[in-house]
Design a protein around this nucleic acid. Sequence first.
RNA 1: GACCCUAUCAUCUAGUGGCCUAGGAUAUCGCCCUUUCACGGCGAGUACCGGGGUUCGAAUCCCCGUAGGGUCGCCA
Length: 472
Amino acid sequence: MNVRTRFAPSPTGYLHIGGARTALFSWLYARKMGGTFILRIEDTDRERSTQESVDAILQGMDWLGLGYDEGPFYQTHCFDRYKAIIQQLVDTGHAYRCYCSKEELEAMREGQMARKEKPRYDGRWRERQDETPPEGIQPVIRFRNPQDGAVEFDDLIRGKITVSNAELDDLIIARSDGTPTYNLTVVVDDIDMNITHVIRGDDHINNTPRQINIMRALGFEPPKFAHVPMILGSDGQRLSKRHGAVSVMQYRDDGYTPQALMNYLVRLGWSHGDQEIFSREEMVEFFSLESINRAPAAFNADKLLWLNQHYLKTLPVEELEAQLQWHLQTQALDTSNGPALADVINVQRDRAKTLVEMVAMSRYFYEDFSAYDETAVQKQFKADTAANLQVVHDELAALAEWKGEPIHAAIQAACEKLGLKLGKVGPPLRVAVTGGSSSPSLEITLELIGRERSLARIQQAVQFIRASAATG
RNA sequence: GACCCUAUCAUCUAGUGGCCUAGGAUAUCGCCCUUUCACGGCGAGUACCGGGGUUCGAAUCCCCGUAGGGUCGCCA
């Protein structure tokens, strides 16, 4: 059997973390089985669907590297097909017109709620198709749900789920303006697209029995279902904006690599023994629906950050260089006048947790800073520091070759001349050339900053300290 | 309220009746490394929701509670 899965978002917002994980699982299963992954845009709600949302979803999937084999298909392009199916259901007695007004339905619901009953359509038009309909009301079309028995399906993640038909009411499949609703379009598309495995969020569990009934009324057997548990916020509540970033693209903006986000998402609710790090190939190789956890999982930003750092440390430099471009632009850092970006990445990748951080902490390689970090100055720039730095400056200035090793030797030589330990000389030097108190090892930092800039900055620091001493 | 689903450290999880005095990871804390910031190394504490069964034996199977989540739209 050729496996066919689909991701079917409705374009009413950006691609969020939960949707991305569902898409990932669906994508992984298709890849794992050598099947086909289809993207379908469920835009039948014309009020809320927007082109911006479609673009945002496409952009998100692209950034994550979730390529689809077919689509994107748009449901709004299939209205004729839905219309024909709805007509077919009416003709075969599986659906009927209901002339209830919205007000009438609202009153019905309120009454049921007041009596503490499950709010549901009571089927009042189910057996009244021969009556002359009321004037001036455009009817909706409802599916005639079976009243006896139960619907049972074997969820690939949850196991057997049974719902009594008595729990299901006659749902609307066509609005009064004739447009189809979700539960109808899903069924028609899943049939038409030969979907074999419906992998989706478990908020759809309750829709599944209805969809199965419609499918059977149409003469088809339902596909396999796999309902993946949703993602909770760090407080165990439904994930929302107050938990921080929810949009996938926000993670790019915040300096995360797609590799880290994918790895985080795949391990959220799924596992393969004790393994934490998965390459894309490993994900595909080891993935299985059966090992997806049944319980919802809480989003943990700390672990994502750790994974991001891991990928910053291990990804090929070229890959990071490519990803960094966007951030360099956004943070307006011009790297053309300074050390090779790859060299800077190699020395900063161990100490940055995000790409945003990496850019921020690499600025001094390319630009002169306008001010020193205040606490660093207080701690490292003492009255006698100026003289010490001058000695270091002179040793460095005499260097024939501006490379890490000789630079290190020169600093050592300065220390000996001064009779000071490196711990006394290094930190102020670091502040002098970087403006702050943290950087890679001194010799590498100096090498990358370059001879002219380094010497000029040390000289500038000497003057700064003398000036402060004079005024202070 | 009704229905559906779920339940191992703070969090993600391993575990499918004996290998479990419950393993890994993140976070936290301590020590080591160290010219700063980091990385890294080593170590510590922390969990089977409760109660009944079944069994020689239960984190694992069953039942009942409890707690959490989801759904009850002319939204998807």
